[in-house]
Design a protein around this nucleic acid. Structure first.
Length: 427
RNA sequence: UCCUCGAUAGCUCAAUGGUAGAGCACCCGGCUGUUAACCGGGUGGUUGUAGGUUCGAGUCCUACUCGAGGAGCCA
C-alpha cells in the first residue's frame, strides 16, 4: 500500500511499510509519522485502545526505524495531508540507532557527508522524484517521435572535442577516457537509424567549482539525419515544452511544496525567442560593458541575456573560433557557425548546446588538422562523410541543469542522488 | 588554478585575550490531538592540524588541511 494513494482507502484497514519520519507523544497518545518514499502519513495510537504493550512499543520507536503499521484510514483536518491511520498493529522491523539528521537545520557540508540519508528527507525526495519524471518525459518524447535509443560508449579512445580535461584510465595498457560527450557516436547512429538519441552519464575533469557544475552529469543527446539547424531548434522547443507540461501536470503540488513559483513555468510556450550571437553582443554592449565581438560569454553574460526573456532563449551563430571543430559554417557568413545554445530563464544558464554538423569530408578533415586532433582517432568519424554524407544536426541537454531550473534550485548538487563534485566523491 | 569567507558538543550556533555555553539529538521522568509538540532532569568538548606571541589563546600571528560562495571552462 502506497501512502500516496491513501485517500482512496478511507474507512478501510490498510498496511503501510516504511520508516518512522517523526514521533510525537504524550502520556496516553502517540503520533507516528511514517514515510514510505511516496509520501507521509500520521499514525495515531491511543493507550486505552491499543493496550500497554503496543503503546510502549510505539513510544520506544526511534527516528528512521523501519516499521510496518496496520490500521484504519480516516479523514482528519488536523493530520498532515488531511488523512491519518488509527494504528491497530505495529511492527518494528529494524530499530534505528540515533539518527544523525534531526528536524532542525543542518549545514551543507554535513548534509553532503550524509547524502545517503539526506535523500530520505521530503524536499530532496520530491526533487529526485521530479528528476525521475523528467527523464521519463524525455524518453517518451523521443520514442513518440520515432527516435531510436542508441547509447554511446562511456569509455572512449580519444577526446571528443579535444578541448576539455578528461578523466583518464588504463584500458588494459591503452589510454582510455571517460566520455565527455556521446555526440560523435550519435552521428554514426544517426546515419544508421535516421533519428537517434542517447542518454547517459558524461564526465568532465575540469576543476570547476560552481553551483552549476558536476564532475559527472547526465546528458541527453539527439542526432538527426537530414535535419538542419532550424529543424533541430524546433525539436528542442517542442521537447522543453513537452517536459514542462508533463511536470506541471504530474508534480504541480510537489513544485509548490518545495517553493517553486509555478507561474514562471506555465508561461513556457513556443516559439522561444531567437537572437544571434552578434545581437547578443550588442545587448551586452548596450548594458554598458565593453565586450568585444568574438569572445565567449561568461555566466554573468548569460544571466543578463536570459533575464530579458520569460521563456528560454536561443542564441545562435556563434563565431567559429569559440565552437567545436565539427560545427558547420553559416553559408551566409563564414565567420560564424550554424550552432545554437539554449539559455534557461531566471539565470539558470545554458541547458542545451547544439547545431548543424559539417557534412563535407574535406572541410571536416581540414578542421581536425586545424584543431591538432589525432587524425587516426577520427578516421571512423570521417568515414561518416565518405560513405553517404547528409546534412545532419543535433543537440545535447544537460539533465541536472534542467532539473535545477524546473525545481527552482539554488545548487545543482540537489538534482542528482549522489553528486560527484570537485574533491567530493563520498558517499 | 585564482579571489573572498569559514572551521567551537553528534547537529545548528554563542562566548571584550581571563573558569567553554544554549537549543536540538540521545537517556530518565511528566503530559489524551500532537504539527520542527511541550515541561523537568541527565550524558556529551584535546575549540580543524602544526607552530608562534602572551603571565594567560576558542579569541592575536604564520603555515597547512578541509569546506562554502564566486570566476574561468562548460551541459
Amino acid at each position: 500500500m502506497s501512502i500516496k494513494r491513501i485517500k482512496d482507502y478511507v474507512n478501510q484497514e490498510i498496511t503501510v511499510q516504511g520508516w518512522l519520519y517523526n514521533k510525537r507523544s504524550s502520556g496516553k497518545i502517540v503520533f507516528l509519522i511514517v514515510r514510505d518514499g511516496s509520501g507521509l502519513v500520521q499514525g495515531v495510537l491511543v493507550k486505552s485502545e491499543a493496550g500497554e504493550a503496543l503503546f510502549a512499543l510505539a513510544n520506544s520507536a526511534t527516528q528512521e526505524s523501519s516499521v510496518r503499521i496496520r490500521g484504519k484510514v480516516q479523514e482528519n483536518p488536523k493530520a498532515p495531508g488531511g488523512y491519518e491511520m488509527l494504528i491497530g498493529d505495529l511492527e518494528i522491523i529494524g530499530r534505528a540507532e540515533p539518527y544523525p539528521l534531526t528536524h532542525k537545520e543542518h549545514g551543507v557540508d554535513f548534509l553532503m557527508e550524509h547524502r545517503h540519508l539526506w535523500i530520505r528527507t521530503p524536499r530532496q525526495n520530491i526533487i529526485l522524484r521530479i528528476r525521475s519524471e523528467i527523464e521519463k518525459a524525455l524518453r517518451d518524447f523521443f520514442h513518440e517521435r520515432d527516435f531510436i535509443l542508441a547509447d554511446a560508449p562511456i569509455i572512449t579512445p580519444a577526446a571528443c572535442e579535444g578541448t576539455t580535461t578528461l578523466f583518464e584510465l588504463d584500458y588494459h595498457g591503452e589510454r582510455g577516457f571517460l566520455s565527455q560527450s556521446g555526440q560523435l557516436y550519435s552521428e554514426a547512429n544517426a546515419m544508421a537509424f535516421g533519428k537517434t538519441y542517447c542518454f547517459g552519464p558524461t564526465f568532465r575533469a575540469e576543476k570547476s567549482k560552481t553551483r552549476r557544475h558536476l564532475m559527472e552529469f547526465w546528458m541527453l543527446e539527439a542526432e538527426m539525419a537530414f535535419h538542419d539547424m532550424e529543424d533541430s531548434l524546433q525539436i528542442q522547443e517542442e521537447m522543453i515544452c513537452y517536459v514542462v507540461r508533463r511536470i506541471l501536470e504530474k508534480h504541480r503540488a510537489d513544485l509548490e511544496h518545495i517553493g517553486r513559483d509555478v507561474s514562471k513555468l506555465e508561461g513556457i510556450k513556443p516559439p522561444f525567442p531567437r537572437i544571434s550571437y552578434s545581437d547578443a553582443v550588442r545587448m551586452i554592449q548596450e548594458s554598458g560593458e565593453d565586450f568585444p565581438w568574438g569572445e565567449d560569454f561568461g555566466a554573468p553574460h548569460e544571466t543578463l541575456l536570459s533575464g530579458k526573456f520569460a521563456a528560454p532563449v536561443f542564441v545562435h551563430r556563434y563565431p567559429a573560433a569559440i565552437k567545436a571543430f565539427y560545427m558547420k559554417p553559416d553559408p551566409a557568413d563564414a565567420r560564424v557557425v550554424l550552432g545554437a545554445d539554449l539559455l534557461a530563464p531566471e539565470g539558470y544558464g545554458e541547458i542545451i548546446g547544439g547545431g548543424q554538423r559539417i557534412d563535407d569530408p574535406d572541410l571536416l578533415e581540414q578542421r581536425i588538422r586545424e584543431h591538432r586532433l589525432p587524425e587516426e582517432a577520427f578516421a571512423w568519424y570521417l568515414d561518416l562523410r565518405r560513405y553517404g554524407t547528409v546534412p545532419h544536426a543535433g543537440f545535447g541537454l544537460g539533465l541536472e541543469r534542467m532539473v535545477a531550473w524546473l525545481c527552482g534550485l539554488e545548487h545543482i548538487r540537489e538534482t542528482i542522488p549522489f553528486p560527484r563534485m570537485l574533491h567530493k566523491i563520498y558517499p
